[in-house]
Design a protein around this nucleic acid. Sequence first.
DNA 1: ACATTTGTTCGACGAATTGACTAATAGGCC
DNA 2: GGCCTATTAGTCAATTCGTCGAACAAATGT
Lengths: 402, 402
Amino acid sequence: MIDLSSLASTRQITLRTVMRILLDRGAVSRAELSRMTGLSKQTMSEVFRELEDGGWVQLAGRTQGSVGRSAATYEVCADRALVFGADVGGTKIHAALADMHGIVLTELIEPTDLRGGEHVVGQLARMSGALADAIGLPAERILAGTVGIPGAYDPRSRQLFMVPNIEGLEGTPLVDRLEALVGFDVQVGNDVNMAAKGEQWLGEGKDVDNFVFIAVGTGIGMGIISERRVLRGARGAAGEISTLPIGSDPFDGRSLRAGALETAIGSAGIRGRYEGSGGETGLTVREIFDRIGRGDAIAIATLDEVARALAQAILAVSAVIDPERVVLGGSIGARPELLERVRHFLDRCMPNAPHCTISELGSKAGLYGTLATSLDALRESLFQTPGYDIPMPGAKPLEQIP
Amino acid sequence: MIDLSSLASTRQITLRTVMRILLDRGAVSRAELSRMTGLSKQTMSEVFRELEDGGWVQLAGRTQGSVGRSAATYEVCADRALVFGADVGGTKIHAALADMHGIVLTELIEPTDLRGGEHVVGQLARMSGALADAIGLPAERILAGTVGIPGAYDPRSRQLFMVPNIEGLEGTPLVDRLEALVGFDVQVGNDVNMAAKGEQWLGEGKDVDNFVFIAVGTGIGMGIISERRVLRGARGAAGEISTLPIGSDPFDGRSLRAGALETAIGSAGIRGRYEGSGGETGLTVREIFDRIGRGDAIAIATLDEVARALAQAILAVSAVIDPERVVLGGSIGARPELLERVRHFLDRCMPNAPHCTISELGSKAGLYGTLATSLDALRESLFQTPGYDIPMPGAKPLEQIP
DNA sequence: ACATTTGTTCGACGAATTGACTAATAGGCC
DNA sequence: GGCCTATTAGTCAATTCGTCGAACAAATGT
């Protein structure tokens, strides 16, 4: 059941701790590490012999300048373990490999195999192999992977559901099938959650523990980072804000199907609003927004309506989960004109509005999020460091407690 | 910095692991534990000698029936460590002690010291002592405590803020002051969050990982349990749904101050609505609702309006965090008539509405939540192996990785 | 030359294992 | 009932693994 002997051997703990520090700090000497961990110098020497034999660390150089003998510094062989990430969209698949430091080594974009289903699974497996080839490393080095999809994944049945944009993926046991093909552990995540994770790793969420990423495009969706973790909800539907009762009557039949907020400010809603107010018919959302610069009053009014609804949505989200920051993305959400108007309305309905910004990573947020998720999994399985810091709460020995 | 040697001594890990299993399983024999942990039989014997000397475990009995020598079973001395919990309200303080198994040993209710501030801190300290006296155990046995307050706590400044109902608590460094008086670790939490935690422990949230507790009374507030943890948000304001843009215009000046939802269905809102529709003036909310049974049409219409707004609020909350269940509490929220109408409206604005119920613990939810929070802290400090949790999910030795 | 820091060798200790050995119990057989 | 046997519980002694501390050799700036 709980097998203490095989899992938590003291040396394993030591090895993992050393690797963790080395990953966080870069090149460090053995003497320095000995001081940091409290382990003795020659335990450190033994540990480094073991790690070097395993190919986990390598000599980095020598210290210089300070008094005393110069020390040999060691660093992690960052490409000893790789992670795979892929952002699967309706038309394209973005995939990449990163090393243990999170450096993106190579990227690849392919059109999504429109036959869908099993073909996409095979395509993902092939892409992971092609990426490893591209940097001349064996594919066996890949130890974890994550796939972002426009839909949801049910961990209980291990199947995908609600994947309208990709043929034949609904009901596929994607994780099991892909793991069988590639041989490393695979996770699946919603694409908007992945984008949020990406912003947390490299973008606007870097220094923030609680924030949301709102994608406004054809539809509207949100990824939540709460206390540094992705919030999934009971059925994996957390962040599905298209159903927020804002902008149109939630008891209306149309809202019941598509969602009130989506009805109001989704692509169809925007076009309908523009045309309904006397604007030219048959324009795309992009064309409508492009007319704002040219002073089209109806376009400006439409933008205002969208911003007003979005501000109310942010107010609602803030009331529920109190984020510190809101990052806007997606083809519509990333427009500066919109951000400006959203801020305007937010100030008029909230005393302490969260800070709003535009996505820093743009269309790459999702891809980077899958890599970040894989890295977390890798670090957890290899070094047991979920998160990025090493919190050790003041645990006193049992004997010393009164 | 990271002192591995002092923290994670092997024997400490073993002791903690054994204590954890003993707490989960009740009385177990040494041989059985040896099989469960993979540790050898006489390591187990040594461990139990140590734990018995420390007063942590005691002989429970002997096994019988099966073939072979009968085994001595040991159990945790549940009252070796106690936890304190207190629910501080504007008029009363409910406090209690529980043992390590979470059995509530004794409770105490006192009127809140109306002089407020420091006097309340002193009162809490005295109550913890009185509770220990009442069960004849030394107060030093209390190793953790939690205080629930109608307000918020800023962990950074270690001070309380937004505590309108209790004089002079705003700005008090409650944790530090109380810890100095009582000598055990103290946590502070919002009362609604505590009620949610209580329902998670002993009430409607027992078997659910994601749910919310909505308190509807004088004001309206919500506690969120997400992936079994209390969600706090960036400023501790997660769940403050009084500001949800529902029921009245969020851009209206009054809503900006009190919150749109609160304006619509807070006590004042309900009375205003009832009187505005031609109902008798000067009634309390309770009196208005009591008239529903007597067929007062205006009261029924008022109830409907409240239920409709609440349903929309639940819709909004579901869109953001996707709870599996909604637990209603508070003087208004706990009324069955309201629940019935809320369910009615929910079915009309959501395809997959979360299951709604009424609080199982009523006014004791908050108190039990503080005890549950203390128990979590106790278990974490005593039995969690810092950094390295023993059941490492799929942690292979570094050497075995390709 | 000297203080200072790095890294190795050697003896000792704490924690856990293994195997042999003793103790207790149920069930079968007379 | 009394006795034997298979089985399980618990102890004792010898050994291994990981670590620490001290002593010592090697390297480097002042």
